[in-house]
Design a protein around this nucleic acid. Structure first.
Lengths: 206, 206
DNA sequence: ATTGCTATCAACCGATTCGGTCAATAGCAG
DNA sequence: CTGCTATTGACCGAATCGGTTGATAGCAAT
Protein backbone atom coordinates (compact mmCIF):
# COMPACT_ATOMS: atom_id res chain seq x y z
CA UNK A 1 0.00 0.00 0.00
CA UNK A 2 1.35 3.39 -0.88
CA UNK A 3 1.71 6.41 1.36
CA UNK A 4 -0.89 8.64 -0.24
CA UNK A 5 -3.51 5.94 0.19
CA UNK A 6 -2.86 6.00 3.91
CA UNK A 7 -3.13 9.77 3.87
CA UNK A 8 -6.46 9.85 2.10
CA UNK A 9 -7.94 7.35 4.52
CA UNK A 10 -7.49 9.45 7.62
CA UNK A 11 -10.24 11.89 8.64
CA UNK A 12 -10.49 14.87 6.29
CA UNK A 13 -10.09 17.29 9.16
CA UNK A 14 -6.73 15.80 9.98
CA UNK A 15 -5.74 15.81 6.31
CA UNK A 16 -6.52 19.50 6.15
CA UNK A 17 -4.58 20.28 9.29
CA UNK A 18 -1.52 18.57 7.83
CA UNK A 19 -1.90 20.23 4.45
CA UNK A 20 -2.37 23.67 5.97
CA UNK A 21 0.63 23.18 8.20
CA UNK A 22 2.75 22.13 5.23
CA UNK A 23 1.53 24.99 3.02
CA UNK A 24 2.27 27.55 5.72
CA UNK A 25 5.69 26.14 6.48
CA UNK A 26 6.84 25.81 2.86
CA UNK A 27 5.14 29.04 1.94
CA UNK A 28 6.94 31.13 4.50
CA UNK A 29 10.35 29.45 4.57
CA UNK A 30 10.81 27.84 1.16
CA UNK A 31 11.72 24.26 0.39
CA UNK A 32 15.18 23.98 1.87
CA UNK A 33 14.54 25.86 5.10
CA UNK A 34 11.38 23.93 5.91
CA UNK A 35 11.95 20.75 7.89
CA UNK A 36 9.65 17.81 8.33
CA UNK A 37 9.76 18.57 12.04
CA UNK A 38 8.35 22.06 11.43
CA UNK A 39 5.40 20.66 9.55
CA UNK A 40 4.78 17.78 11.94
CA UNK A 41 4.73 20.04 14.98
CA UNK A 42 2.42 22.54 13.34
CA UNK A 43 0.12 19.70 12.33
CA UNK A 44 0.22 18.06 15.74
CA UNK A 45 1.56 14.72 14.54
CA UNK A 46 4.91 12.99 14.73
CA UNK A 47 7.57 13.56 12.13
CA UNK A 48 7.45 9.89 11.16
CA UNK A 49 3.88 10.28 9.94
CA UNK A 50 4.93 12.82 7.36
CA UNK A 51 7.17 10.23 5.74
CA UNK A 52 4.59 7.53 6.23
CA UNK A 53 1.97 9.55 4.36
CA UNK A 54 4.07 11.16 1.65
CA UNK A 55 7.23 9.06 1.33
CA UNK A 56 9.69 11.93 1.41
CA UNK A 57 9.90 15.67 1.61
CA UNK A 58 10.07 16.24 -2.12
CA UNK A 59 7.01 14.10 -2.79
CA UNK A 60 5.05 16.10 -0.24
CA UNK A 61 6.16 19.35 -1.82
CA UNK A 62 5.16 18.27 -5.31
CA UNK A 63 1.86 16.92 -4.02
CA UNK A 64 1.10 20.32 -2.51
CA UNK A 65 1.85 22.06 -5.78
CA UNK A 66 -0.52 19.79 -7.63
CA UNK A 67 -3.20 20.21 -4.97
CA UNK A 68 -2.95 23.99 -5.03
CA UNK A 69 -3.00 24.07 -8.80
CA UNK A 70 -6.22 22.10 -8.79
CA UNK A 71 -7.75 24.26 -6.08
CA UNK A 72 -7.14 27.48 -7.95
CA UNK A 73 -8.07 26.04 -11.33
CA UNK A 74 -11.37 24.72 -10.05
CA UNK A 75 -12.28 28.02 -8.51
CA UNK A 76 -11.41 29.97 -11.65
CA UNK A 77 -13.34 27.74 -14.00
CA UNK A 78 -16.35 27.84 -11.70
CA UNK A 79 -16.47 31.54 -11.00
CA UNK A 80 -14.98 33.34 -13.98
CA UNK A 81 -17.46 34.53 -16.52
CA UNK A 82 -15.64 35.87 -19.55
CA UNK A 83 -18.82 37.06 -21.18
CA UNK A 84 -19.13 39.92 -18.76
CA UNK A 85 -16.77 42.57 -20.06
CA UNK A 86 -17.52 45.34 -17.62
CA UNK A 87 -14.32 46.61 -16.04
CA UNK A 88 -15.40 46.58 -12.43
CA UNK A 89 -17.37 43.38 -12.81
CA UNK A 90 -14.26 41.59 -14.02
CA UNK A 91 -12.29 42.95 -11.09
CA UNK A 92 -15.03 41.87 -8.73
CA UNK A 93 -14.98 38.35 -10.14
CA UNK A 94 -11.20 38.11 -9.83
CA UNK A 95 -11.36 39.32 -6.24
CA UNK A 96 -14.12 36.88 -5.45
CA UNK A 97 -12.08 33.99 -6.82
CA UNK A 98 -9.05 34.98 -4.80
CA UNK A 99 -11.21 35.44 -1.76
CA UNK A 100 -12.78 32.00 -2.06
CA UNK A 101 -9.42 30.30 -2.50
CA UNK A 102 -8.26 32.12 0.61
CA UNK A 103 -11.28 31.03 2.54
CA UNK A 104 -10.88 27.40 1.56
CA UNK A 105 -7.12 27.24 2.10
CA UNK A 106 -5.43 30.38 3.43
CA UNK A 107 -2.03 28.89 2.72
CA UNK A 108 -2.49 28.27 -1.00
CA UNK A 109 -1.59 31.66 -2.44
CA UNK A 110 1.48 32.40 -0.33
CA UNK A 111 2.64 28.87 -1.03
CA UNK A 112 2.22 29.19 -4.78
CA UNK A 113 3.98 32.51 -4.83
CA UNK A 114 6.88 31.02 -2.90
CA UNK A 115 6.97 28.10 -5.34
CA UNK A 116 7.47 30.59 -8.16
CA UNK A 117 10.61 31.90 -6.47
CA UNK A 118 11.93 28.53 -5.38
CA UNK A 119 15.63 28.07 -6.07
CA UNK A 120 16.43 24.79 -4.28
CA UNK A 121 18.30 22.49 -6.65
CA UNK A 122 16.40 19.45 -5.42
CA UNK A 123 13.05 20.62 -6.74
CA UNK A 124 13.97 23.24 -9.32
CA UNK A 125 13.64 20.99 -12.39
CA UNK A 126 10.22 19.67 -11.39
CA UNK A 127 8.94 23.07 -10.35
CA UNK A 128 10.06 24.72 -13.53
CA UNK A 129 8.51 21.95 -15.58
CA UNK A 130 5.18 22.48 -13.82
CA UNK A 131 5.37 26.24 -14.16
CA UNK A 132 6.14 25.92 -17.84
CA UNK A 133 3.17 23.60 -18.19
CA UNK A 134 0.89 26.10 -16.52
CA UNK A 135 2.32 29.03 -18.44
CA UNK A 136 -0.57 28.81 -20.85
CA UNK A 137 -3.03 29.15 -18.00
CA UNK A 138 -1.01 31.91 -16.38
CA UNK A 139 -1.40 33.64 -19.70
CA UNK A 140 -5.10 33.08 -19.43
CA UNK A 141 -5.09 34.66 -16.02
CA UNK A 142 -3.87 37.81 -17.69
CA UNK A 143 -6.71 37.38 -20.13
CA UNK A 144 -9.01 38.23 -17.25
CA UNK A 145 -7.96 41.78 -17.82
CA UNK A 146 -8.07 41.74 -21.58
CA UNK A 147 -11.06 42.62 -23.65
CA UNK A 148 -12.44 44.66 -20.82
CA UNK A 149 -14.97 47.32 -21.57
CA UNK A 150 -13.58 50.67 -20.52
CA UNK A 151 -16.02 52.84 -22.45
CA UNK A 152 -17.96 53.93 -19.41
CA UNK A 153 -15.06 55.78 -17.83
CA UNK A 154 -15.12 59.52 -17.37
CA UNK A 155 -12.83 61.48 -19.61
CA UNK A 156 -9.40 62.15 -18.16
CA UNK A 157 -9.36 59.00 -16.07
CA UNK A 158 -6.93 56.34 -17.22
CA UNK A 159 -8.40 52.83 -16.84
CA UNK A 160 -4.90 51.36 -16.85
CA UNK A 161 -4.02 53.39 -13.77
CA UNK A 162 -7.23 52.34 -12.06
CA UNK A 163 -6.39 48.75 -12.84
CA UNK A 164 -2.94 49.12 -11.33
CA UNK A 165 -4.48 50.73 -8.27
CA UNK A 166 -6.88 47.87 -7.85
CA UNK A 167 -4.18 45.28 -8.21
CA UNK A 168 -2.13 47.03 -5.56
CA UNK A 169 -5.18 47.31 -3.35
CA UNK A 170 -6.02 43.66 -3.66
CA UNK A 171 -2.43 42.72 -2.85
CA UNK A 172 -2.52 44.85 0.27
CA UNK A 173 -5.92 43.67 1.36
CA UNK A 174 -4.78 40.14 0.79
CA UNK A 175 -1.66 40.78 2.87
CA UNK A 176 -3.72 41.99 5.79
CA UNK A 177 -5.92 38.95 5.52
CA UNK A 178 -3.06 36.47 5.57
CA UNK A 179 -1.04 38.19 8.25
CA UNK A 180 -4.00 38.24 10.58
CA UNK A 181 -4.09 35.19 12.83
CA UNK A 182 -7.85 34.79 12.78
CA UNK A 183 -9.14 37.04 10.01
CA UNK A 184 -12.76 38.01 9.68
CA UNK A 185 -13.19 37.13 6.03
CA UNK A 186 -16.64 38.60 5.70
CA UNK A 187 -15.64 41.96 7.16
CA UNK A 188 -12.67 42.17 4.82
CA UNK A 189 -14.78 41.15 1.89
CA UNK A 190 -17.43 43.79 2.57
CA UNK A 191 -14.81 46.46 2.99
CA UNK A 192 -13.12 45.57 -0.24
CA UNK A 193 -16.38 45.59 -2.13
CA UNK A 194 -17.20 48.98 -0.65
CA UNK A 195 -13.93 50.27 -2.02
CA UNK A 196 -14.69 48.82 -5.41
CA UNK A 197 -18.11 50.47 -5.52
CA UNK A 198 -16.73 53.77 -4.37
CA UNK A 199 -14.11 53.70 -7.06
CA UNK A 200 -16.66 52.75 -9.65
CA UNK A 201 -18.86 55.66 -8.69
CA UNK A 202 -15.87 57.98 -8.88
CA UNK A 203 -14.71 56.74 -12.28
CA UNK A 204 -17.83 56.08 -14.28
CA UNK A 205 -19.81 58.76 -16.02
CA UNK A 206 -22.78 59.67 -13.91
CA UNK B 1 39.45 46.33 19.91
CA UNK B 2 35.83 45.40 19.58
CA UNK B 3 34.12 43.88 16.58
CA UNK B 4 31.94 46.81 15.62
CA UNK B 5 34.99 49.05 15.45
CA UNK B 6 36.45 46.74 12.84
CA UNK B 7 33.18 46.83 10.98
CA UNK B 8 32.95 50.59 10.86
CA UNK B 9 36.49 50.90 9.55
CA UNK B 10 35.91 48.95 6.37
CA UNK B 11 34.70 50.81 3.25
CA UNK B 12 31.11 51.98 3.54
CA UNK B 13 30.16 50.17 0.34
CA UNK B 14 31.23 46.89 1.88
CA UNK B 15 29.41 47.72 5.10
CA UNK B 16 26.25 48.31 3.16
CA UNK B 17 26.59 45.10 1.21
CA UNK B 18 26.88 43.15 4.45
CA UNK B 19 24.01 45.00 6.10
CA UNK B 20 21.75 44.56 3.09
CA UNK B 21 22.60 40.87 2.90
CA UNK B 22 21.82 40.43 6.59
CA UNK B 23 18.57 42.40 6.40
CA UNK B 24 17.37 40.39 3.43
CA UNK B 25 18.31 37.07 4.98
CA UNK B 26 16.79 37.75 8.41
CA UNK B 27 13.86 39.55 6.86
CA UNK B 28 12.82 36.67 4.66
CA UNK B 29 13.69 33.70 6.87
CA UNK B 30 13.52 34.94 10.44
CA UNK B 31 16.15 34.64 13.13
CA UNK B 32 16.39 30.90 13.60
CA UNK B 33 16.30 29.90 9.95
CA UNK B 34 18.93 32.41 8.90
CA UNK B 35 22.48 31.11 9.14
CA UNK B 36 25.70 33.07 9.21
CA UNK B 37 26.65 31.22 6.03
CA UNK B 38 23.57 32.59 4.25
CA UNK B 39 24.52 36.14 5.10
CA UNK B 40 28.21 35.70 4.37
CA UNK B 41 27.58 34.22 0.93
CA UNK B 42 25.08 36.92 0.01
CA UNK B 43 27.56 39.56 1.14
CA UNK B 44 30.48 37.96 -0.65
CA UNK B 45 32.64 37.48 2.42
CA UNK B 46 33.64 34.52 4.55
CA UNK B 47 31.49 33.33 7.41
CA UNK B 48 34.30 34.06 9.86
CA UNK B 49 34.08 37.78 9.07
CA UNK B 50 30.52 37.93 10.31
CA UNK B 51 31.69 36.82 13.73
CA UNK B 52 34.76 39.00 13.54
CA UNK B 53 32.63 42.09 12.90
CA UNK B 54 29.64 41.41 15.11
CA UNK B 55 30.73 38.86 17.70
CA UNK B 56 27.81 36.52 17.34
CA UNK B 57 24.56 36.07 15.49
CA UNK B 58 22.40 37.62 18.16
CA UNK B 59 24.56 40.76 18.40
CA UNK B 60 24.28 41.20 14.64
CA UNK B 61 20.53 40.82 14.80
CA UNK B 62 20.13 43.38 17.56
CA UNK B 63 22.50 45.75 15.80
CA UNK B 64 20.32 45.57 12.70
CA UNK B 65 17.21 46.36 14.71
CA UNK B 66 18.85 49.42 16.18
CA UNK B 67 20.14 50.52 12.79
CA UNK B 68 16.75 50.16 11.15
CA UNK B 69 15.02 51.96 13.97
CA UNK B 70 17.37 54.90 13.53
CA UNK B 71 16.96 54.89 9.77
CA UNK B 72 13.20 55.08 9.94
CA UNK B 73 13.14 57.54 12.80
CA UNK B 74 15.52 59.92 11.05
CA UNK B 75 13.46 59.86 7.90
CA UNK B 76 10.21 60.48 9.74
CA UNK B 77 11.51 63.39 11.78
CA UNK B 78 13.01 64.94 8.65
CA UNK B 79 10.09 64.56 6.32
CA UNK B 80 6.92 64.57 8.36
CA UNK B 81 5.22 67.92 8.69
CA UNK B 82 2.38 67.68 11.16
CA UNK B 83 1.24 71.20 10.47
CA UNK B 84 -0.18 70.22 7.13
CA UNK B 85 -3.53 68.61 7.91
CA UNK B 86 -4.75 68.00 4.39
CA UNK B 87 -5.77 64.39 3.97
CA UNK B 88 -3.96 63.64 0.75
CA UNK B 89 -0.95 65.70 1.68
CA UNK B 90 -0.48 63.60 4.83
CA UNK B 91 -0.78 60.44 2.79
CA UNK B 92 1.71 61.78 0.29
CA UNK B 93 4.18 62.55 3.07
CA UNK B 94 3.82 59.10 4.57
CA UNK B 95 4.35 57.50 1.18
CA UNK B 96 7.38 59.66 0.54
CA UNK B 97 8.93 58.64 3.83
CA UNK B 98 8.36 54.99 3.13
CA UNK B 99 9.69 55.43 -0.36
CA UNK B 100 12.89 57.11 0.83
CA UNK B 101 13.56 54.44 3.42
CA UNK B 102 13.08 51.88 0.69
CA UNK B 103 15.47 53.67 -1.61
CA UNK B 104 18.15 53.93 1.05
CA UNK B 105 17.81 50.38 2.33
CA UNK B 106 15.30 48.13 0.55
CA UNK B 107 15.67 45.53 3.27
CA UNK B 108 14.67 47.69 6.21
CA UNK B 109 10.91 47.43 6.10
CA UNK B 110 10.60 43.69 5.44
CA UNK B 111 13.17 43.15 8.16
CA UNK B 112 11.33 45.26 10.70
CA UNK B 113 8.06 43.58 9.91
CA UNK B 114 9.67 40.17 10.38
CA UNK B 115 11.14 41.36 13.68
CA UNK B 116 7.62 42.12 14.86
CA UNK B 117 6.62 38.50 14.29
CA UNK B 118 9.83 36.98 15.63
CA UNK B 119 9.22 34.05 17.96
CA UNK B 120 12.74 32.63 18.49
CA UNK B 121 13.36 32.20 22.20
CA UNK B 122 16.94 33.43 21.88
CA UNK B 123 15.95 36.97 20.92
CA UNK B 124 12.34 37.25 22.04
CA UNK B 125 13.03 39.07 25.34
CA UNK B 126 15.30 41.69 23.73
CA UNK B 127 13.01 42.17 20.76
CA UNK B 128 9.95 42.63 22.90
CA UNK B 129 11.77 45.07 25.12
CA UNK B 130 12.73 47.17 22.10
CA UNK B 131 9.25 47.01 20.63
CA UNK B 132 7.77 48.08 23.95
CA UNK B 133 10.25 50.95 24.04
CA UNK B 134 9.22 52.10 20.58
CA UNK B 135 5.54 51.64 21.29
CA UNK B 136 5.24 55.34 21.95
CA UNK B 137 6.64 56.11 18.53
CA UNK B 138 4.50 53.46 16.90
CA UNK B 139 1.64 55.34 18.45
CA UNK B 140 2.98 58.49 16.88
CA UNK B 141 3.03 56.75 13.54
CA UNK B 142 -0.69 56.34 13.89
CA UNK B 143 -0.86 60.01 14.72
CA UNK B 144 0.09 60.63 11.12
CA UNK B 145 -3.48 59.82 10.33
CA UNK B 146 -5.07 61.67 13.21
CA UNK B 147 -6.16 65.26 13.11
CA UNK B 148 -6.48 65.05 9.37
CA UNK B 149 -8.68 67.55 7.59
CA UNK B 150 -11.44 65.68 5.80
CA UNK B 151 -13.73 68.63 5.22
CA UNK B 152 -13.01 68.88 1.50
CA UNK B 153 -14.50 65.48 0.70
CA UNK B 154 -17.55 65.14 -1.45
CA UNK B 155 -20.69 64.11 0.34
CA UNK B 156 -21.32 60.37 0.39
CA UNK B 157 -17.64 59.49 0.30
CA UNK B 158 -16.24 58.01 3.50
CA UNK B 159 -12.72 59.27 4.24
CA UNK B 160 -12.09 56.26 6.46
CA UNK B 161 -12.71 53.96 3.53
CA UNK B 162 -10.42 56.00 1.31
CA UNK B 163 -7.77 55.80 3.98
CA UNK B 164 -8.09 52.04 4.13
CA UNK B 165 -7.89 51.87 0.36
CA UNK B 166 -4.74 53.92 0.34
CA UNK B 167 -3.11 51.84 3.03
CA UNK B 168 -3.88 48.69 1.05
CA UNK B 169 -2.60 50.31 -2.10
CA UNK B 170 0.64 51.38 -0.51
CA UNK B 171 1.16 47.89 0.86
CA UNK B 172 0.66 46.39 -2.57
CA UNK B 173 2.80 48.94 -4.33
CA UNK B 174 5.45 48.37 -1.74
CA UNK B 175 5.20 44.61 -2.29
CA UNK B 176 5.80 45.01 -5.99
CA UNK B 177 8.77 47.21 -5.30
CA UNK B 178 10.44 44.78 -2.94
CA UNK B 179 9.72 41.65 -4.93
CA UNK B 180 11.23 43.17 -8.03
CA UNK B 181 14.90 42.32 -8.35
CA UNK B 182 15.94 45.66 -9.78
CA UNK B 183 13.01 48.01 -9.26
CA UNK B 184 12.69 51.32 -11.04
CA UNK B 185 11.96 53.46 -8.00
CA UNK B 186 11.16 56.58 -9.95
CA UNK B 187 8.65 54.86 -12.21
CA UNK B 188 6.90 53.31 -9.21
CA UNK B 189 6.91 56.60 -7.41
CA UNK B 190 5.36 58.50 -10.32
CA UNK B 191 2.71 55.87 -10.76
CA UNK B 192 1.77 55.93 -7.12
CA UNK B 193 1.53 59.71 -7.10
CA UNK B 194 -0.65 59.58 -10.20
CA UNK B 195 -2.98 57.28 -8.33
CA UNK B 196 -3.05 59.60 -5.38
CA UNK B 197 -3.89 62.60 -7.55
CA UNK B 198 -6.56 60.70 -9.38
CA UNK B 199 -8.16 59.67 -6.15
CA UNK B 200 -7.97 63.18 -4.82
CA UNK B 201 -9.71 64.50 -7.89
CA UNK B 202 -12.40 61.87 -7.53
CA UNK B 203 -13.00 62.49 -3.84
CA UNK B 204 -12.70 66.23 -3.36
CA UNK B 205 -15.46 68.66 -4.14
CA UNK B 206 -14.77 70.23 -7.50
C1' DA C 1 -8.96 -13.94 26.35
C1' DT C 2 -6.40 -14.11 22.37
C1' DT C 3 -4.99 -13.19 18.07
C1' DG C 4 -3.73 -10.37 14.27
C1' DC C 5 -3.64 -6.00 12.11
C1' DT C 6 -2.89 -1.17 11.62
C1' DA C 7 -1.92 3.50 13.00
C1' DT C 8 1.32 5.95 15.51
C1' DC C 9 5.50 7.50 17.54
C1' DA C 10 9.90 7.77 20.25
C1' DA C 11 14.29 6.61 19.48
C1' DC C 12 17.61 6.12 16.41
C1' DC C 13 20.72 6.40 11.98
C1' DG C 14 24.44 8.58 9.25
C1' DA C 15 24.99 12.88 7.05
C1' DT C 16 24.80 17.63 7.01
C1' DT C 17 24.67 22.10 8.96
C1' DC C 18 24.77 24.89 12.91
C1' DG C 19 27.22 28.87 15.65
C1' DG C 20 31.61 29.88 16.67
C1' DT C 21 37.03 29.51 16.86
C1' DC C 22 41.65 29.61 15.29
C1' DA C 23 45.90 28.91 13.01
C1' DA C 24 47.59 30.04 8.78
C1' DT C 25 48.02 33.16 4.96
C1' DA C 26 47.96 37.11 1.99
C1' DG C 27 48.64 41.80 1.34
C1' DC C 28 50.47 45.90 2.46
C1' DA C 29 53.18 49.76 5.01
C1' DG C 30 57.51 50.77 6.76
C1' DC D 1 62.59 41.98 4.65
C1' DT D 2 59.74 42.74 8.71
C1' DG D 3 55.87 43.37 11.23
C1' DC D 4 50.93 44.11 11.33
C1' DT D 5 46.25 43.53 10.08
C1' DA D 6 42.49 41.78 7.33
C1' DT D 7 40.76 37.65 5.75
C1' DT D 8 39.93 32.96 5.33
C1' DG D 9 39.70 27.67 5.05
C1' DA D 10 39.64 24.20 8.01
C1' DC D 11 38.02 22.74 12.08
C1' DC D 12 35.20 22.01 16.63
C1' DG D 13 31.33 19.88 19.33
C1' DA D 14 26.55 20.32 19.22
C1' DA D 15 22.35 20.49 16.91
C1' DT D 16 19.42 19.36 13.22
C1' DC D 17 18.66 17.31 8.84
C1' DG D 18 15.83 13.60 5.95
C1' DG D 19 14.54 9.23 6.65
C1' DT D 20 13.99 4.36 9.12
C1' DT D 21 12.50 1.09 12.44
C1' DG D 22 11.22 -1.52 16.48
C1' DA D 23 8.03 -1.09 19.91
C1' DT D 24 3.46 0.00 21.44
C1' DA D 25 -1.32 0.99 21.71
C1' DG D 26 -5.84 0.46 20.16
C1' DC D 27 -9.19 -2.19 18.06
C1' DA D 28 -11.84 -5.83 15.33
C1' DA D 29 -12.74 -10.49 14.77
C1' DT D 30 -12.63 -14.89 16.56
Amino acid sequence: MEGLDHFHKIPVEKQNKIIDAALNAFGSNGYKKTSAKDIAEAAGISKAMIFHYFGNKKALYLYLIQLCGETVMTEVSEKLNRNNTDFFERIRMAAEIKFDVLRKRPGVLPFLSSVMNETADEVKPEVHAIIAGKEASAFREKMVFEGMDTSKFKEGIDPKLILKMLIWMSEGYFNDLTSDADPDFDAFYTEFMDCLNLLKKACYQS
